[in-house]
């Protein structure tokens, strides 16, 4: 679906974790036309002070009810304003924007890795994968037990494994430390979270074939490989990451939200927010 301006009516708003909100909006156009990994650009109410829209991953989208949800943390005036919107009020969303996660049709076991609010970036992919009959494991990392995304908000079919930095719930340590235990099981991995986490995952993914003893046999017939960044190439890659960057227009016009790729600048809003791990120049990411 091409992007459009949509009036989304707030149906429900609740705080699910300290400082983190889950809001449901009635926006049938977005609910039916969006794919996991895409985002919406939300106009804030007070234009005199806040001149930019705010990008949010589409957390879930239900075509049957026309409901899309956003999951966000209050980090500034824009998100604070959003928490004060009352049920029944309409807000202005531009979307769906960006390119979605690309799942190889042959992939059966999907590993989703989320750090903190990164859950919002991969949450919808869990729904899509379960719907398509795939096995899903979500590895989730947070500061402490009080910041762990409630398992009640996930589909029942999903295996949910938690790591906390202080060890108050699940694995004591970073979520990336859980990944080696799943890399043989997983056909593909999808991640969203802080850039250091994504960087570590990209390093793990790069060494995966070697560790698993998977040989790369011969040359591909036809000799042609899909160009880096194409949908076909992304579909074949092991790790896809959803990146974050401060954003201006969100449609690819202002070139504000770039990250550094191996072949030059990439716009998070247009080439992303989902990238194959090989597209990103990780040494330039801090």
């Amino acid at each position: 679906m091409t992007m459009r301006l949509v009036a989304a009516e707030l149906v429900e708003s609740r705080q699910i974790l300290p400082g983190q909100w889950l809001q449901s909006f009635h926006a049938p156009e977005l609910a039916t036309g969006s794919r996991a990994g895409q985002f919406v650009h939300v106009r804030t109410g007070d234009y005199s002070g806040l001149v930019l829209r705010r990008p949010f991953s589409i957390n879930t989208a239900d075509p049957a009810t026309g409901i899309v949800t956003l999951h966000f943390r209050t980090v500034g005036r824009g998100t604070e304003w959003l928490t004060r919107v009352r049920e029944g009020e309409q807000i202005d969303m531009l979307g769906p924007l960006g390119r979605p996660f690309e799942v190889d049709p042959r992939s059966h076991n999907l590993l989703l890795v989320a750090g903190g609010l990164g859950m919002a970036g991969v949450r919808m992919l869990a729904d899509e994968a379960v719907r398509d009959g795939r096995q899903v494991t979500i590895l989730f990392g947070a500061l402490s037990a009080s910041h762990v995304y409630p398992s009640s908000l996930l589909p029942d079919e999903v295996e949910y494994v938690v790591a906390t930095d202080d060890g108050s719930l699940g694995h004591h340590g970073y979520v990336t430390e859980l990944v080696p235990g799943y890399e043989a099981w997983a056909d593909q991995a999808f991640a969203c979270g802080p850039h250091p986490m994504l960087k570590r995952l990209a390093a793990l993914a790069a060494g995966r074939r070697g560790r698993l003893g998977v040989a790369k046999l011969g040359r591909k017939r036809g000799g042609q490989t899909d160009p880096l960044g194409s949908t076909a190439a992304r579909r074949k890659t092991f790790l896809q990451v959803s990146m974050e960057q401060t954003m201006g227009c969100a449609v690819g016009a202002c070139l504000g939200c770039t990250v550094i790729g191996v072949n030059g600048m990439l716009r998070v809003c247009r080439e992303g927010p989902v990238f194959a791990a090989e597209e990103i120049s990780w040494e330039a990411i801090s």
Partner: peptide, 23 residues
């Protein structure tokens, strides 16, 4: 031109700062 290093935009009171660098 490749333009400047990210981040390139940020909101400020009643405005925004950008340094795209003519990409």
């Amino acid at each position: 031109r490749a333009g400047n290093q990210p981040p390139r935009v940020t909101e400020t009171p009643g405005g925004m700062l950008n340094s795209i660098g003519l990409q």
